[in-house]
Computed example of a mutant assay.
Amino acid sequence: MTKIKETSTNFMNKQALTKDCLEVYASNIIGGQWTLAICCYLIDGKLRFGELKKCLPNITERMLTMQLRKLEENKIVQRTVYAEVPARVEYELTQIGYELKPIIKELKKWGEKHKVL
């Protein structure tokens, strides 16, 4: 993941678009291929890290961890750690995350309609 320098024109343009256009703001939060895929799998309920990894076999553990942290920071995903040995950690969508369900369904319909094989 490339980090944009905060002094760059690209960064300032992105900040301005995010501030002025709520659609850009929303797409910046759920826009990545992994982010949206994680949300799609969590719509059906809680999953552990290993279960998410099995759903997304091409994602690295590092990338999955980074994406889950980003989703937590944006209050889309909630991480619950259970006091067990070994520790059990589950991820689930928050109420805000579940509000994405109709949007994700519409994206699926759009994809089915416009997918070129």
Rank of each mutant, 00 (worst) to 15 (best):
E84W: 01
S27L: 11
I29E: 08
K53R: 10
N10Q: 10
Q33I: 01
Y25C: 13
Y25W: 09
K75Q: 15
K54R: 01
T9H: 00
T9I: 02
D20A: 14
E92V: 03
Q33R: 15
K115Q: 12
W34P: 07
Y25H: 15
E99M: 11
K53W: 04
L107K: 05
G31L: 10
K14F: 05
K54L: 06
I4W: 00
V77K: 01
A83K: 12
T7I: 01
A16Q: 14
I104Y: 01
K53S: 04
S8M: 05
E61D: 12
L68V: 05
K14P: 00
T18C: 11
Q67K: 05
E72D: 10
I104P: 07
K54Y: 00
E92S: 13
L47G: 05
M66P: 03
K115E: 11
K19D: 11
L47A: 01
E106Y: 10
M66V: 08
D20F: 15
L64Y: 06
E106G: 10
K109P: 06
Y98P: 01
L56V: 04
V85Y: 12
V116M: 11
P57K: 02
W34G: 14
C55G: 03
N74G: 05
G50S: 09
H114N: 12
L42E: 04
T18E: 15
R69S: 11
T94Q: 00
K5E: 10
Y91A: 08
F49Q: 04
L68K: 00
Q95C: 00
I30Y: 10
Y82L: 10
K3M: 06
K70S: 14
R79G: 07
L17K: 11
C40T: 11
T65N: 07
K70N: 11
L36E: 07
K3V: 11
K14N: 10
C39D: 02
M1H: 08
G50Q: 07
E90A: 09
L100F: 15
Y82S: 05
Q33Y: 11
F49A: 01
L100K: 02
L52T: 03
A87M: 09
V116Y: 14
Y41I: 04
L107C: 14
T18Q: 11
V24F: 12
Y41T: 06
Y41C: 08
M66E: 14
N28E: 14
L93A: 08
